[in-house]
């Protein structure tokens, strides 16, 4: 397969640049990594505190349901999940870009990470909603 930086007869010059940086998509990614990192700080502290209080009471299903029955907790948990899984998708993307050099596996893994993060978020967030009502 022709590499991104190789020229072929039908390739427009733009194809040499797109997806390889310097087309301003990096800044967007970077900003979102940082914004979710910032949001993660209070959310993680709340999450650890909540996990501690739940664990200290034995973390049985009854306690968990009672916890999420309070709207504040359900809302914060969904926000936590959204911020963390978006942050995770962005972070793992960079790790894959850095270490995976196989031109076939790389795009598949990048797509896989995005989809997996979305699936995990939806499954977890839906579960919180179900527990909360």
């Amino acid at each position: 397969m022709a590499q991104k930086w190789e020229d072929t007869a039908f390739k427009a010059p733009m194809a040499r640049a797109r997806g390889l940086g310097s087309v301003h998509s990096g800044l967007h990614h970077w900003m979102h990594q940082k914004i979710t990192a910032l949001a993660n700080i209070p959310l993680v502290l709340w999450g650890v505190w909540s996990a501690m209080t739940l664990a200290a009471t034995g973390a049985d299903l009854y306690t968990i349901r009672g916890f999420f029955a309070q709207p504040v907790n359900a809302i914060l948990m969904v926000l936590f999940l959204g911020s963390v899984f978006y942050h995770m998708a962005l972070g793992l993307q960079v790790v894959i870009e850095d270490y995976v050099h196989c031109e076939k596996a790389k795009p598949l893994m990048l797509i896989g990470v995005k989809l997996l993060s979305l699936v995990l978020f939806v499954a977890a967030a839906f579960s919180v909603l179900k527990l909360s009502i």
Binding site: D60, A123, S127, V128
Partner: peptide, 30 residues
Amino acid sequence: SGVALSVGSLMLVWMLVAAANGSESYACFR
């Protein structure tokens, strides 16, 4: 740690899905 947290997040999802699924699933997670 970022990669480890990503793997570990599976356990959080497991907990929530199991809890939503009912007492049997949750007991398995617990």
